[in-house]
Amino acid sequence: MTSLKYLSLMALLFFTGCATEMHQKIKLDLPAYSPIKIEEYKELIFVPFFIMTESTRPSSASEQNPVKLELEKEKSETKAEQGPSREEQKKTISPIEVQREIMKYFVSEFSRRFKGEIRQETQALTSPEALRSPEYWISLVNNAQASLIFTGQANFKAEIRKAILYRSSPSRADQSEEDLFGPEKKLEARHVFTLDLQLALIKAATGEIVLERSFKETKMTPDLNYPAHFALYELMQRVKLILFRQIFGEERPQERYLLIK
């Protein structure tokens, strides 16, 4: 027993000694690594996106999901209570408007960060395949040394989904709250906006893709009259946050542990 007591004491001392290593948590703004040296380019050329529609968009596994419904056209009970409103017109957004909004947004955002010239082309990307065709880009943009092309393809969809919901926790994405004191389960409708973006930065001189990235952002709201162009703007903001970290190496707050001995 005595030996056990001494053994325990030694073990305690050993572990206490190990625990003398101290650390301190610190917060830093760390720049993200950027694979492209954008400051080397003198010009940024915006080529309007290829907008995917139902006919042009390739089918995907998600479309086979029986839970997902087609676009709802009839008025919901909630909308009927509120009466007809201007929101009716804003529930959908045409492909032309999508393209215009995307171009307008990224042109203005890039113009605040990019130190060189900014130019907009009128000819849109003709097909997704053209993205990977260096000849296409070289022929499109003449004498484009030190120029970078920003383009891609986009698909923006607004739909109303219905499902039977059980009591659940609040959705952080759209700051809505489920009814925690309502019935155990009930049929609920949600307005869902999805933005699919494949973005590419292409070296104009060679047609080589220097950065390619896909984004899929979703916004869900119980407001069936939520304007589509508001949702599009919000989704583009999310994309921009991630994209600019990669392109401009924007700093973001990170936690690190500093070991102090």
Binding site: R86, Q175, D223, Y226, P227, E234
Partner: peptide, 13 residues
């Protein structure tokens, strides 16, 4: 409402 909503691209809850 129309003005503020369009400019801020936000809809009140």
């Amino acid at each position: 409402y129309f003005r503020v909503s369009e400019i801020l691209k936000h809809k009140l809850s």
